[in-house]
C-alpha cells in the first residue's frame, strides 16, 4: 500500500515541477513583446548604432585638408603583439627650418592579423590612429585585408610635434 502511495505521490510531484517550469514559459509566451533583446540584424543596418568604444578596425584619422597626425614614430608598430602594423617612412627636408624631418610614406595595416587589442591606440603619442566601430569587412580575397591607411597625397598636420 505504501509503495502505491509513494508511486502516485511521485507522479503528482513530477507533474507539479513540470507545470512550474511551463508557467515560466507560458508567462513569456503570453508577454512575448515585453522584452525583446534580439535584433533583426541585416535589416536594421541603417539604424544600428554601435557603442563609441567598440573596436572594429584601426583607422588613421584625416581632417578636411587631407592631413593626419602620424609622425612615423613606430610606437604602434612596437606595441603591436602580432606585427599587424608596418610603417614605411621617409626623411624630407622642412622648407622653413631646413632640418630633415621624418614623414610616413606608407602606413600598412594587415587587418587579417589584427586582434583588436587596442594596444596601438593607447601607445600613440599624437592620437593619430583610432578604433572605428564599423565592421563587416569579410572579403573573398585575403589581399583586400591589407590596407594602406594614409590617404594618397595626405600630409602631416603642421601643429603635430
Amino acid at each position: 500500500m505504501n509503495a502505491i502511495t509513494s508511486y502516485f505521490k511521485d507522479i503528482f510531484h513530477a507533474i507539479k515541477t513540470l507545470l512550474t517550469g511551463m508557467r515560466v514559459t507560458g508567462y513569456y509566451f503570453s508577454h512575448a513583446r515585453k522584452e525583446i533583446i534580439t535584433q533583426q540584424y541585416p535589416e536594421n543596418r541603417d539604424t544600428l548604432k554601435m557603442f563609441d568604444r567598440f573596436r572594429g578596425i584601426v583607422t588613421l584619422t584625416h581632417d578636411e585638408n587631407n592631413e593626419h597626425a602620424c609622425t612615423g614614430c613606430s610606437a604602434c608598430e612596437i606595441a603591436c603583439p602580432n606585427g599587424t602594423i608596418e610603417i614605411i617612412s621617409d626623411r624630407e627636408e622642412d622648407p622653413e627650418t631646413g632640418k630633415k624631418k621624418k614623414i610616413i610614406d606608407k602606413f600598412i595595416y594587415h587587418y587579417s592579423m589584427c586582434t583588436l587589442c587596442n594596444l596601438c591606440i593607447i601607445s600613440c603619442p599624437t592620437d593619430a590612429i583610432k578604433m572605428d566601430p564599423s565592421f563587416e569587412y569579410a572579403t573573398f580575397d585575403r589581399k583586400d585585408l591589407t590596407m594602406i591607411l594614409n590617404k594618397p597625397g595626405s600630409k602631416i598636420r603642421k601643429d603635430v610635434k
Binding site: 557603442f51 567598440f54 583588436l116 593607447i122
Partner: peptide, 25 residues
C-alpha cells in the same frame, strides 16, 4: 543568453569588446 546579453552590452560599452575585452593593463 537573454540575461547574458545585458552583461555583454556593459562590456561592449566600457571595454570596447564583448568577449576578448583586454581591459586590464
Amino acid at each position: 543568453f537573454r540575461d547574458r546579453e545585458m552583461i555583454n552590452d556593459i562590456f561592449e560599452e566600457t571595454c570596447g569588446a564583448r568577449l576578448t575585452v583586454n581591459y586590464n593593463v
